[in-house]
Design a protein around this nucleic acid. Structure first.
Length: 524
RNA sequence: GGCGCGUUCGUCUAGGGGUCUAGGACGCCGGCCUCUCACGCCGGUAACACGGGUUCGAAUCCCGUACGCGCUACCA
C-alpha cells in the first residue's frame, strides 16, 4: 500500500513551493491507488492553530488536492496534529534511550558552542565529546546536583557510512562520523522535529517520504532514528525546490520585496491587486501575493492551471506534452522523471497555462466563474437578474480569450454602468473624437445607420456600417475608433459590432449622443 | 570550514556514448491577419559552466575546478 504525506506547519498561508511538494505526494499516491495523508507539524505550539490552519486547508480544497487522512477527515492513524502526539514521541525517545541509541546529556548550549568553535579553529569537523553524557542513573543525579538540566541526544554512529537510495537522485551516502548527536528531546520533555517526523512517518505507515531537497542532508538522522526503533525504512524522494523568478535561490515569502522588482512578477502582482481592489477585497501585501496560493484563487485562476504549471516545474513527461488534465497528471506521474535541479518560478509561463485551461472551459462554466466577481464588485445584483445574466454570457463569448482570469471580467465594467456614468479614457477621447475634424460628422452618420438598422445584431450591424462606409469615401477604421470610444469609453476592446449588439440600440444611441454633447461642450 | 546535492537557450525542459550541425514550450525580435486589443499563423534569436581524462566517437561515463543551493540549531 502506497502512502504519502504532506506535513505543513500552520503558518496561515499556503506557499506555492509547498503546494508543489504536496502535489507530487498527492499525484504519487493517486497514481498508485494509495493514500495521501495530511499531518500538521505544529510542534512549536502555536497559539492559534485553527486560524492558521484554515487557509491551508482551504487552499488544498480549492486546488482539489484531497487528503484521505488528516484534519477534518480523521483516519485510523490519528491524531494528525503533532502537538497531540507528544506521548507517542516520548515513548519513542524512551525506547531509544533504552536501546542505547540515545542518551541523556547535561551539557549547556554554551559548552557545546565552545566545543564547536574549538573544533572549527583547529580545522576539524565538530563532533560532540559527549563529556556530559549520562549513561546511568547516578550520572544523571550527579549532573543534576550541579544544577544541570538534562535533554536527550541521539547517539550517532561514529564510523561507517549511511547509504540509501533516493528515488529522485539515486544512491546517496553520508559518513556517519559527520553527523551530530542531535537533540531529540528538550529538558521540558517536548520533542524536536526530526524525532517527531521519523516516528510519525512510521506511525502513519508512510511508504514514500517525498519532500523538499533541503531534507536530503537530514535523512541520515531519520534513517538512524527509524532503524534504531526497529522500524522499516520508507522510500525517500527529495524534490528540488522551487526557486525565485530569474534566480536559483529558494522561493521564500520573506523576499517578496525583491521579487516585486522582477517585471513579470510585479505585473502578476498588480493584476491581482487590481482585481482585489475592484471587488473591495482587503488585502495585505504579505498575505496576498503570487507566492501564496490564495492569491490565485482570489483573482480567478483555475486550479487546474496552477497545478499544471506546478507539475511541470521539476517534472516532465516527454519532450512535447505541456498540458495535462487532472486525470492525465495522475495517469502519468512518476518520481523517475522528477528533475534533480531547482526550477525557478516564471509568472509569465504560469499565464500560458491559465489561458490554455480557460480556453478549454465551456461558456457556461466560465459564466459561473465570472458572475461572483461582478456581484462582489456590485456591477450586477445578487442574485443576478436573468436578463443581465444572458448579457454576461454574451460578453464572455465576445470577449473570448481576453478574459484570462475570471476576475478579468471586471475590465468590462462599461457594460454594467448607466450611460450617463460612463468614464472616458481621456487620451482616447482626444485622439479619436476631439482631434479628427471629421469625427463629429462620422458619429452622426453612424448614429443614423444604427438608428435605422432594423435588426440590431452583430451581423446586420456590420453589414449596415460596411455598406455605408463603402458608399462614401471613408474608411472603416475612421469610424470604428470614434464609435468605440463613444460607446465604451475605451480605446481597446473586443469586436465593435458584438459590443453594439450586447449594449442594444437604446444604450448605443444614448452613448453616442452623450459623446457628441461632450465634444461640443469642451471644443468651444 | 566540513559534508551533501546540483549545473543544457533568458525561463521550463527533451536528451541517458554515435540518429545532436542539440528538439519542444514560454519569452523576445520580425512578418502576416485585423476595426483596436487579445488570439491565431509564419519566420528568426538563443544553451550542453570550465578543464582534464576514458573512447574510434561524449551534452551523455570518470576526475578536478568554479559557481549555486542545502545541512552542519534545545527551527521546521
Amino acid at each position: 500500500m502506497i502512502r504519502t504525506r504532506f506535513a505543513p506547519s500552520p503558518t496561515g498561508y499556503l506557499h506555492i513551493g509547498g503546494v508543489r511538494t504536496a502535489l507530487f505526494n498527492w499525484l504519487f499516491a493517486r497514481r498508485h491507488a494509495g493514500s495521501f495523508v495530511l499531518r500538521i507539524d505544529d510542534t512549536d505550539q502555536e497559539r492559534n492553530i485553527d486560524a492558521a490552519l484554515q487557509p491551508i486547508l482551504d487552499g488544498f480544497r480549492w486546488l482539489g488536492i484531497d487528503w484521505d487522512e488528516g484534519p477534518e477527515v480523521g483516519g485510523d492513524h490519528g491524531p494528525y496534529f503533532q502537538s497531540q502526539r507528544g506521548e507517542i514521541h516520548r515513548a519513542a525517545v524512551d525506547a531509544l534511550l533504552e536501546s542505547g541509541a540515545a542518551y541523556r546529556d547535561y551539557s549547556t548550549t554554551e559548552e557545546i558552542r565552545v566545543e564547536r568553535e574549538e573544533a572549527q579553529t583547529k580545522g576539524r569537523p565538530f563532533v560532540y565529546s559527549r563529556r556530559f553524557m549520562a549513561e546511568t542513573e547516578t550520572d544523571c543525579k550527579r549532573f543534576e546536583a550541579e544544577g544541570r538540566r538534562g535533554l536527550v541526544r541521539l547517539k550517532m554512529p561514529r564510523e561507517g557510512v549511511c547509504r540509501f537510495v533516493d528515488l529522485v537522485r539515486g544512491p546517496v551516502e553520508f559518513d556517519w562520523a559527520r553527523e551530530q548527536d542531535h537533540v531529540i528531546q528538550r529538558p521540558d520533555g517536548t520533542c524536536l522535529y526530526h524525532l517527531a517526523s521519523a516516528v510519525d512517518d512510521h506511525e502513519f505507515a508512510i511508504s514514500h517520504v517525498i519532500r523538499a531537497e533541503e531534507h536530503l542532508s537530514n535523512t541520515p538522522r531519520h534513517v538512524f532514528i527509524t532503524e534504531s526503533l526497529g522500524y522499516e525504512l520508507p522510500e525517500y524522494a527529495h524534490l528540488p525546490y522551487v526557486a525565485e523568478p530569474g534566480s536559483k535561490n529558494k522561493l521564500s515569502k520573506r523576499k517578496l520585496g525583491k521579487y516585486l522588482k522582477n517585471p513579470d512578477f510585479a505585473r502578476l502582482n498588480e493584476h491581482g491587486d487590481r482585481i482585489a481592489a475592484a471587488v473591495g477585497l482587503q488585502v495585505a501585501a504579505d498575505s496576498f501575493n503570487p507566492v501564496i496560493v490564495d492569491f490565485y484563487r482570489e483573482i480567478g485562476f483555475l486550479p487546474e492551471a496552477l497545478l499544471n504549471y506546478l507539475l511541470l516545474l521539476g517534472w516532465s513527461l516527454d519532450d512535447k506534452t505541456e498540458f495535462f488534465s487532472r486525470q492525465e497528471m495522475i495517469d502519468h506521474f512518476s518520481l523517475e522523471r522528477v528533475q534533480r535541479s531547482p526550477a525557478s518560478f516564471d509568472p509569465t509561463k504560469l499565464w500560458t497555462f491559465q489561458e490554455h485551461h480557460m480556453e478549454e472551459l465551456e461558456p457556461d462554466a466560465k459564466l459561473g466563474l465570472v458572475l461572483p466577481y461582478l456581484e462582489r464588485a456590485g456591477l450586477v445584483g445578487s442574485p443576478v437578474d436573468p436578463e443581465i445574466r444572458d448579457q454576461v454570457a454574451q460578453i464572455i463569448v465576445a470577449a473570448g480569450d481576453r478574459i484570462k482570469a475570471a476576475g478579468d471580467i471586471l475590465d468590462y465594467d462599461e457594460f454594467f454602468c448607466v450611460d450617463d456614468a460612463l468614464d472616458y479614457d481621456e487620451k482616447a477621447f482626444d485622439k479619436r473624437i476631439r482631434k479628427p475634424p471629421e469625427a463629429r460628422g462620422l458619429l452622426l452618420g453612424v448614429r443614423e445607420r444604427l438608428a435605422a438598422t432594423p435588426d440590431f445584431t452583430t451581423a446586420a450591424l456590420e453589414e449596415a456600417v460596411r455598406n455605408w462606409v463603402d458608399e462614401t469615401d471613408i474608411k472603416l477604421g475612421q469610424i470604428i475608433h470614434a464609435l468605440r470610444v463613444s460607446v465604451t469609453g475605451k480605446p481597446v476592446g473586443f469586436g465593435m459590432f458584438e459590443i453594439l449588439e450586447i449594449l442594444g440600440r437604446g444604450r448605443c444611441l444614448a452613448r453616442i449622443d452623450r459623446a457628441l454633447a461632450r465634444l461640443d461642450d469642451t471644443s468651444e
